[in-house]
């Protein structure tokens, strides 16, 4: 779990690192910490998964990735750990989760988000997933987003 100093690091970096030659020192000064404590904590938070990665956070839409397809798969419960790991490892899959089915309307338990420049590009990537998964998938669909109804940042408690 995060301690109080970690939470102050979250708050101080949520909008990004300062774009200066010594960003961790600036951050440390801001928080009244030692620079090595800041980098040590960031390293630990990366290892624990609280930080997914440090770097450029792209705006998919502005980079031309305007097609966003949510591919959903009906995978036997026994196979999902293996299949999910293999699908998630594909370079073009941005999120990969197991979620509950809602039968009969919704038989799908594996979600893999695929971004592309066009719907056809997304469809061909989904076909690659289908080839990889093979008969372990009983059915799949791709749901394209047709409209963004709301988009705000996640509310992170700091």
């Amino acid at each position: 779990m995060l301690d109080a100093i970690d939470r102050r690091l979250v708050a101080a970096t949520q909008a990004g690192l300062p774009l200066v030659p010594e960003p961790y020192r600036v951050l440390a000064d801001q928080l009244g910490l030692d620079e090595l404590e800041v980098t040590g904590r960031l390293k630990r938070l990366l290892v624990s998964g609280a930080i997914r990665r440090i770097g450029a956070i792209p705006n998919h839409y502005a980079l031309g990735y305007t097609a966003n397809g949510m591919s959903v798969w009906d995978i036997a419960d026994n196979d999902i750990a293996d299949i999910g790991a293999r699908v998630g490892a594909l370079e073009f899959v941005t999120h990969c989760y197991e979620r509950p089915r809602h039968l009969p309307l919704w038989p799908y338990n594996l979600f893999a988000m695929v971004h592309g420049r066009t719907r056809d590009e997304v469809r061909s990537k989904v076909a690659e997933i289908a080839a990889l998964v093979g008969p372990a998938s009983r059915a799949h669909e791709v749901l394209f987003s047709t409209r963004i109804l709301k988009k705000t940042g996640l509310r992170i408690a700091a």
Binding site: L17, A50, I51, I57
Partner: peptide, 17 residues
């Protein structure tokens, strides 16, 4: 606007949210 920001990508759930 091509990048939303540059820095750590925090995992919201691990932050207690």
């Amino acid at each position: 606007g091509q990048l939303s920001r540059f820095g750590p990508l925090w995992n919201a759930e691990q932050l207690g949210g």
